[in-house]
Simulated scan of single mutants.
Amino acid sequence: MTAFSATDAALEGFRITRERPRVVLVWAVFSFLVSICSAIYLISIGQEARAVLDARVAEQAPDLQAFGAAMADLAPMMVMGLLVQCVMAAAVYRILLRPEDRGLAYLKVGMDELRLAALTFIYVLLASLMLAVVVLAAGLIAALASFAGQGAAILVAAASELFFLGLLFYVAVRLSLAPAITFAEQRIAIFDSWRLTHGQFWRLTGAYFLAICGIMVIALLVVTIFSALVAVAVGGDLQAVGKMFAPDQTSLTTYFSPVMIIYLLVAGWLSALYYAVVIAPAAVAYRELTRA
């Protein structure tokens, strides 16, 4: 059976950043510019829309009409966010699967990116449908178990919830090569990953786990060091440091403080590193599993 090294796949993104620093620098600048545009757009939509979103994040119950209006205001930014993700993913795929197709630091906007966007949209719909079915099934099982008593119902509900979460995770891993297949074969491959990943679940899980852990450790270290430097620069004012993570969005002037701009630059580099590290394992797995 054809296989691949989970460790090599997990570390491939770090190898890209080490061997192609100029490419990563362009990605970082691109991510920084996207952050700037996103911030400008969020500030421009007004305080009322942001208040609705903040209520949603805090799990409060916003007015449905106001929430619908806020979602309509945010729709262009969400579309742009999806496109940016697909552009960055395609850039990583180009390095590993089509290195001769350079573009500007492997960044392009074309049919490859549109196919990835279409695949993402299809998967969001399928995931929503599957989640609804799982919730319905778990509720039905809990209702049937309630005839045996409250204790049995709680136990069965917890067990069924864990089972269905595990099932969703298993399906997600088995289908995780779909974007790489879609890019490499230049067609929307919705379920082709299922056949290709037969017998590879644990290798893929290990590769993804190692990659995510690696980028989380780096991000934590970078943010901690940067926060400490800012704290020293402002005389130990921790409240000023906290404003980086909850900036004043009432105007462009209050938002784009010198500290915030530097923070966005650092975040841009971390974003570029994140895409390289997280996207690369699937591309490596596809390349090795399809190698004759």
Rank of each mutant, 00 (worst) to 15 (best):
V241N: 00
Q200F: 04
A90I: 02
E161W: 15
P62W: 00
A105Q: 05
T250C: 12
I45H: 02
L162P: 13
V217F: 03
Y208D: 09
F183L: 07
I36K: 10
E161R: 15
I36A: 09
M216D: 10
A283Y: 04
L144T: 09
P179T: 08
L273R: 05
F164K: 04
G46N: 05
A153K: 01
L129Y: 12
Q239T: 12
V266R: 00
T7E: 12
G268C: 02
A292E: 13
P258L: 08
L220D: 14
I16V: 13
V171H: 05
A91E: 01
R50D: 03
P247C: 03
G242A: 02
D73E: 15
A184P: 05
L114C: 09
V241E: 00
A117C: 09
I154P: 08
L229W: 01
L167R: 06
R187T: 13
A127R: 07
S31R: 01
I279L: 07
V34L: 09
A61M: 15
E113D: 08
Q239C: 12
Y123P: 11
A280P: 00
L25W: 13
L165V: 13
L126G: 03
L119G: 03
S38C: 13
K243C: 12
K108N: 15
I188P: 02
F4I: 02
I218A: 04
V23L: 11
F32T: 04
G166T: 01
R291S: 02
L175H: 00
Y123F: 15
G199V: 06
A117D: 02
A127G: 09
A117N: 03
A159K: 08
V223E: 12
A55Q: 07
M216C: 10
Y275N: 14
A189G: 11
F4D: 00
H198T: 14
V234L: 08
E12A: 14
V79F: 04
L229R: 01
R102A: 07
A189F: 10
T197R: 00
V171Y: 02
A157D: 07
V223A: 14
T182Q: 01
G206T: 01
L270M: 09
T224W: 12
E288R: 00
E288L: 03
L144E: 13
Q186H: 11
L264A: 11
R18N: 08
R20Q: 13
L82G: 09
V222F: 01
L165C: 14
I215W: 00
F4E: 00
L42M: 14
A55K: 10
V277G: 00
R195Y: 13
A9E: 05
K243F: 15
S31I: 01
V84Y: 07
G151K: 10
A49F: 06
L204A: 03
D192W: 11
F30L: 03
L144K: 08
A142L: 06
E161L: 14
T290M: 06
T197F: 03
S38W: 15
Q60R: 06
L175T: 05
V173A: 05
L114M: 10
E161D: 15
V156K: 04
I36D: 08
I262F: 14
G81Q: 08
L144N: 11
A105I: 05
F67N: 11
P62C: 03
A143K: 04
T253Y: 12
V217W: 05
K108S: 13
